[in-house]
Design a protein around this nucleic acid. Sequence first.
DNA 1: ACATCTATTGACAAAATGCAGTTAGTTGGT
DNA 2: ACCAACTAACTGCATTTTGTCAATAGATGT
Lengths: 134, 134
Amino acid sequence: MPGRRQGKPGSCRQRQRRGMRLILRPSLLLMLAENESHGYDLLDRLGSFGFDSGRLDSSIVYRDLRDMEATGLIESYWDDDSKGPKRRVYRITDVGLICLEEWMASLGTVAEQINQLIQKFKSNKKEKKEINHD
Amino acid sequence: MPGRRQGKPGSCRQRQRRGMRLILRPSLLLMLAENESHGYDLLDRLGSFGFDSGRLDSSIVYRDLRDMEATGLIESYWDDDSKGPKRRVYRITDVGLICLEEWMASLGTVAEQINQLIQKFKSNKKEKKEINHD
DNA sequence: ACATCTATTGACAAAATGCAGTTAGTTGGT
DNA sequence: ACCAACTAACTGCATTTTGTCAATAGATGT
């Protein structure tokens, strides 16, 4: 009996992951809108966007960067002048700037929806409390 | 040369989907915290949570319900008394109530992170404008 | 009889994820 | 000289998770 997603009762935590993925690319793109930079650097600046560096595999970041390059949002060149292994330095494109704008708009919508959901949740809780009190 | 996620330049829209998936289960669980109900009904009440019913395949909803049942957040029974085909009616469990609480908390965090991101974006834009004006 | 609406489920391809490993240059210690 | 640790980027692959597209089936209206 295979049965998909068997899950122990208590595995209610993967929502974090989803949340992270939702803002990963926008965060990267925003950083690149400020300054050009390379993956490794972006990776550890992600902390300031609320990312838990322990939970975030570097391959995801590198992969997202490559993907964004493939879709034309960013472009890259090799920097071999810096010390250490050479870096692939990314910079945002015009398409990327437009996309960033769109992403921010739709993230705004998502945030609103989340807040509405939370409001509903709170009023539901309140209601229950009143019934139980009665 | 295969290359993952090749994407035309302009496919900057899939963020919506992620946002939807982020709140789908919490929305369903919240509805079930209010009243027990069945998939088909929940499905069309999703509109009031900001879901575009055109974009959301019913099988996703049914699957999420089954998955939540598998993890013990909800439980179900068959209702054959109602007219039409029989329904699988779900109700939330105690574990589900706790989970709902946790989900709402972590969604709150996500909303905050999104808002911070948007703030950064706005101040970045402002900065650029000032430089260009100078 | 046939279309339509209600209601749920299944199968399968495509995409996303996590993990581990590979390649390489640099720095510093013993 | 050798080894460990850090920086830096990438690849491969087995799972999970999605999205799509049906298939099934009772009920209702014409």
